[in-house]
């Protein structure tokens, strides 16, 4: 007894208990974590599916609108609408078109004149 008292061998040994507890916690935690992860995967899978369906739906709507847009841009449709709305649009006659000669770069730029645009920006339309 005296020896036990001296070395306190009868005292509660926390080490093994703690180890056992941690082991249980690890096993239990792993199990819960595994289930949680599986649940997350499943939920993400459902979200992916929903988004895929939504994307598909948007794609189909887009197709529908593209088709509608194409129909509305067709020459026949436009011609019919012009007649229906009585716009009286006719092609411009050559006399109604002003054709401007593009000024050459050297002529347009005076000495000391500040250039506000890079050379390729001068002239908004290509020649032709």
């Amino acid at each position: 007894m005296a020896r036990n008292r001296k070395y306190q061998s009868a005292a509660i040994r926390f080490g093994p208990s703690l180890k056992a507890f941690l082991l249980c916690l690890l096993i239990g935690g792993s199990g819960v974590g595994y289930v949680w992860q599986k649940d997350q995967i499943s939920q993400l899978g459902q979200q992916i599916k929903k988004r895929e369906q939504y994307l598909d739906e948007l794609g189909k709507q887009n197709e529908k609108l593209r088709k509608q847009f194409a129909e509305m841009r067709s020459p026949r449709f436009l011609e019919r609408r012009i007649q229906e709305l009585g716009l009286g649009l006719v092609p411009p006659q050559p006399a109604q078109v002003w054709r401007l000669t593009e000024p050459s770069r050297e002529v347009s730029r005076q000495d000391g004149e500040q250039q506000y645009a890079t050379p390729h920006q001068v002239g908004t339309e290509p020649k032709g």
Partner: peptide, 17 residues
């Protein structure tokens, strides 16, 4: 007898050639 409504009628078309 309706007025002609072309782009040219409102503003002459400016084409750079």
């Amino acid at each position: 007898d309706r007025p002609v409504r072309t782009a040219a009628a409102r503003t002459p078309v400016k084409t750079i050639q």
